[in-house]
């Protein structure tokens, strides 16, 4: 099989020397996975190279790292597809988590977030006693499975901008996990789960980074949005959910009545008079206050909008 020489630049790290880059040259063919590249570097050139790897088929979630700056699983990355025009590849550890050694990071903070969402099915007592069987439609199974496919690789949390700024945000993976149980007809703890998840859901900024980096296509941001769909059923109140409720109800109301959003109305209803006035002053200063009075026409055929927005079918 045709082989090509590649250069792999690895950002190494240890407690004594700190971080430094080291380059390795080796040959790879068109099938060579990055896990195999690392294994060969370790066994042939640098036995001290530290990284995690287990299944090499993208189900164990061990080999998370940044390859050419992209949060990736090494096993899912084919070396020759990842090289640049100079046949080089840059490999470094994931962002956000504290470094331990070379490509190994301490992802305890990731696990802790997972544990916080009661990540286990609580079935009805009669089922646990074996008195009743559980049924589940194929459609329900499909959706639950989608969010259950998370392999704890930690890539989404390493790349999430909200997690970095907000300790109280549970992060994408834990939300997908938490929602998977909310969504499961066999579970009995829906309201407890909403208590765990709802406030945090509104700490997500919907930037789709988790969707982008997830090697399993779990789409955590969609799980978060689906959790927010339960806001009307959620009985609790936190400062975050109170504000979100105001904001989202106003959006919905505006669309229902005019088909469009008026940002100025939205600001006023969401932030209250005081904050909206501060915004208005900023607008005045910027010379953009006039835009607050821009009046776009409402949707003409509002019947279409109203009929579409009717009760959930």
């Amino acid at each position: 099989m045709e082989e090509k020489e590649i250069t792999v630049n690895i950002k190494k790290y240890n407690d004594k020397d700190g971080a430094f880059w080291k380059s390795y040259k080796l040959k790879a063919d068109k099938y060579t996975q990055m896990t195999e590249v690392l294994r060969r570097i370790k066994s042939e050139q640098d036995p001290s190279l530290a990284y995690r790897a287990s299944c090499h088929m993208a189900v164990c979630g061990s080999c998370s790292m940044k390859i050419n700056g992209i949060p990736s699983l090494a096993c899912r990355t084919i070396a020759l597809q990842a090289v640049d025009e100079k046949n080089e590849i840059n490999v470094e550890s994931m962002d956000y988590y504290p470094g331990v050694r070379d490509l190994i990071t301490d992802i305890d903070v990731f696990y802790d977030k997972m544990y916080k969402v009661m990540p286990r099915l609580i079935a009805d007592e009669s089922v646990l006693m074996g008195e009743n069987e559980q049924r589940m439609t194929p459609e329900n199974q499909t959706e639950v499975w989608k969010f259950q496919e998370c392999i704890y690789c930690g890539l989404c949390v390493s790349a999430c901008p909200s997690v970095k700024e907000d300790e109280q945000f549970l992060g994408p993976a834990a939300h997908a996990k938490g929602f998977r149980f909310i969504d499961d007809v066999r579970d009995t703890k829906k309201s407890e789960r909403l208590d765990l998840l709802m406030d945090s859901a509104y700490r997500c900024t919907s930037c789709y980074m988790c969707y982008e980096v997830c090697p399993q296509d779990v789409q955590p941001v969609i799980a978060i949005k689906k959790t927010k769909n339960y806001l009307d059923q959620y009985k609790g109140n936190t400062p975050i959910t109170i504000m979100a409720r105001k904001h989202d109800d106003t959006v919905e109301n505006l669309i229902e009545t005019t088909g469009k959003i008026k940002e100025s109305t939205l600001f006023l209803k969401t932030f209250g008079f005081g904050e909206a006035m501060r915004d208005a002053i900023d607008m005045l200063k910027s010379g953009k206050f006039k835009y607050a009075f821009e009046k776009d026409s409402n949707v003409k055929n509002m019947n279409e909008i109203k009929n579409m927005m009717g009760e959930k079918k």
Partner: peptide, 20 residues
């Protein structure tokens, strides 16, 4: 019985149209 137990603990087995 072990498959039923796994199901009760949350394993999302693929289903038949009737839910089994």
């Amino acid at each position: 019985e072990i498959v039923s137990l796994l199901d009760a603990w949350g394993a999302p087995f693929n289903r038949q149209p009737d839910g089994r």
